[in-house]
């Protein structure tokens, strides 16, 4: 099979597979295998989406719900990424910095973030801070760990070469250690956005009156399953867009990765 043919086949299947699921869903609901409360038809869900787009949901416009979610993840994720990269670089490079964070980070890491939410609510209430903190915490740990692994993967010869060519310790960091760690860092960012979105929805299920997670919870309380689906699909698409975006950036930023 020529590379062109294989590529075309790959994309044909990649597009056909979700269409097949959609078709199965359509046929199933059209023949009344499930009541709309259990499984609304695709058409009903699209109708519900258009309705939310036009008239909003529960007193808030569609954009206000979307923006509430995006804002939470944007703030928490950005802070987590910056801190995670900085601390990961330092932990990977300096053993004593690693010693400071080793036990706290390792104790915190296996705790499911949802287990920490009640504590955060107790301390900070059910406002924005608690939601952002729980997202921040899980993304931060992921990014820090991946960055640290990236620093550890730096080839010793690269560092020696830089020193031998006259680089200062800071220049070694900037020109050698950081770019060497970049492929791992980008992996951390991609895993981090996925986890971040998961935690976002979970955090929004706990309270508040804006956000995609809120739509899901509120709609399910009133058996408006079509609106539940709207929320679920939107979060899925948001995650897909973020991941593809990061992958696109990653391919251009770390163009040398995976090449001999």
């Amino acid at each position: 099979m020529s590379p062109g043919t294989e590529r075309r086949l790959y994309w044909t299947i990649a597009i056909a597979s979700p269409l097949a699921i959609l078709a199965l869903w359509y046929v199933g609901t059209a023949h009344g295998f499930a009541t709309p409360v259990i499984l609304p038809s695709p058409g009903t869900v699209i109708g519900a989406f258009v309705d939310i787009l036009r008239n909003g949901y529960s007193g808030g416009s569609f954009l206000s719900h979307l923006w509430a979610s995006v804002q939470r993840i944007l703030v928490a994720y950005s802070v987590a990424v910056v801190l995670g990269i900085v601390l990961g670089l330092l932990r990977g490079r300096y053993r004593l910095v690693d010693a400071v964070f080793l036990v706290p980070a390792e104790v915190l890491r296996p705790i499911p973030p949802l287990g920490i939410i009640p504590l955060l609510i107790l301390w900070f209430g059910i406002g924005e801070l608690s939601k952002m903190l729980v997202i921040f915490l899980s993304v931060f740990l992921i990014v820090m760990l991946n960055t640290q692994a990236g620093v550890r993967s730096v080839r010793p010869d690269s560092i020696r070469a830089a020193l031998s060519l006259g680089a200062s310790p800071f220049q070694v960091f900037r020109y050698v250690i950081f770019p060497s760690a970049l492929p791992h860092i980008m992996t951390g960012l991609r895993i981090g956005i996925g986890t971040g979105l998961t935690i976002l929805v979970a955090a929004e299920l706990l309270g508040g009156d804006r956000g995609l997670g809120f739509i899901i919870l509120d709609a399910s309380n009133f058996f408006r399953t079509k609106d539940v689906f709207v929320g679920i699909v939107l979060i899925g698409l948001l995650g897909l867009a973020c991941d593809r975006g990061l992958q696109w950036i990653s391919r251009r930023l770390v163009h040398w990765d995976g090449k001999p």
């Binding site: 080839r155 010869d157 690269s158 020696r160 070469a161 020193l163 031998s164 060519l165 050698v176 040398w256």
Partner: peptide, 19 residues
């Protein structure tokens, strides 16, 4: 310590892949 007055060519090359 190391310095550019005694710079090294490595067997592995040790080139900076990102440059």
């Amino acid at each position: 310590g190391p310095g550019p007055d005694r710079a090294v060519v490595f067997q592995s090359g040790a080139l900076f892949d990102w440059m």
